[in-house]
């Protein structure tokens, strides 16, 4: 009998890691403060005691070094590293090992290299962490062919997608929004996987489609609920994985509703939001009954003061306004 309980997003991730480590001795966890401390958000809690310092390895603050180590270890086929980059904002100090090395090895080595590794990292504003600890940079990773990019919004998705990511034979960037760690949701106790590349319609509707990611899924659902009382039926599609992207589910929804708002916490230009808007224009143009709108932060760094940051993050008010304009 399936046991389903309410646990947090962070606990769901922890269960996925624990399951993979217990099942496959090749799985190792590496990163800053992932061992004794259990990860600064508690995602690796308890793993150090259970699997020891060799498999749950605290690293120095040397992201190029230890993420490059993960790439090299994965290339041997002897290990499947799950390596943690504490904040996605730190990708600048390690990017080469990801976008030029991990991402390209399979292709440029003629399909003969396999880099089975997961880079877990955090994104998201809302904590007055300012410009260098708050960004949502999934578009940077998604731009480069060869990296899979996963961005769950619920505890259920988090567990199933992390299991799939660790078992995947390609490098996966697994992005966890900091604002989601404490949210609770129903998660089966036993392991399960969610295929990468399958969007989830979080709420069905017929008047307008919102495509939203991570924390923005929840804000969009709030707006949908509010508008329902006025008789407006909003469909909320969560792609769950940016690469591979479930184009069919998104396009089918747009064809059904004829209207699209994209809500994302990434910057507006050359972004996930503009990518989905372009997709709608090229694949569902005849179905569109109104111009597409995107709701994103402005093209500025993330400000520090709560008074400024709350203006910067896409709010339910801004989402609602965009939806009303498109309707």
């Amino acid at each position: 009998m399936a046991v389903v309980r309410e646990i947090t997003f962070a606990q769901a991730l922890n269960e996925a890691l624990d399951y993979e480590m217990s099942k496959d001795p090749k799985v190792v966890v590496m990163g800053e403060d992932v061992g004794v401390y259990g990860g600064i958000y508690g995602v690796t809690a308890g793993l150090y005691d259970k699997y020891g310092p060799e498999r749950v390895r605290d690293t120095p603050i040397a992201e190029s070094g230890f993420i490059g180590t993960a790439v090299g270890a994965a290339a041997t086929g002897l290990l499947r590293p799950v390596v943690e980059l504490m904040f996605i904002d730190f990708l600048g100090v390690t990017f080469d090992q990801l976008y030029n090395q991990a991402a390209k090895m399979r292709y440029m080595f003629g399909g003969k290299a396999k880099i089975s590794m997961v880079l877990r990292t955090t994104c998201g504003a809302g904590f007055s962490a300012a410009a260098q600890h708050s960004q949502s940079l999934h578009a940077l990773f998604s731009h480069v062919p060869g990296l899979k990019v996963v961005m769950p919004s619920t505890p259920y998705d988090a567990k199933g997608l992390l299991i799939s990511s660790i078992e995947d034979d390609d490098p996966v960037i697994f992005i966890e929004h900091k604002g989601l760690y404490a949210i609770k949701g129903e998660v089966p106790e036993e392991p399960y996987s969610i295929p990468l590349g399958e969007a989830d319609v979080k709420r069905e509707g017929k008047d307008i489609t919102i495509v939203a990611t991570a924390a923005m899924v929840h804000k969009s659902l709030e707006v949908a609920e509010k508008l329902e009382k006025e008789g407006v039926s909003v469909e909320v599609v969560d792609p769950r994985t940016i690469v591979p992207l479930d184009v069919d589910t998104i396009i089918n929804s747009i064809k059904k509703t004829g209207k699209l708002v994209v809500v994302d916490e990434g910057y507006p230009r050359a972004s996930f939001a503009s990518d989905i808007a372009a997709l709608a224009a090229s694949k569902a143009f005849d179905s569109l009954k109104a111009p597409v709108k995107i709701v994103t932060p402005p093209a500025t760094p993330v400000p520090f003061s709560p008074a400024l940051e709350s203006e910067w993050i896409p709010s339910t008010e801004k989402i609602e306004k965009a939806v009303r304009e498109v309707l």
Binding site: G68, A73, A75, T76
Partner: peptide, 25 residues
Amino acid sequence: SCSGIVGASFPQAVGVGIAAKLKGE
């Protein structure tokens, strides 16, 4: 293997080393 990016090899060799050590090779 080899790489066109200057300095890319060093951490990857550490990764091979860690795999060897963990697997007793």
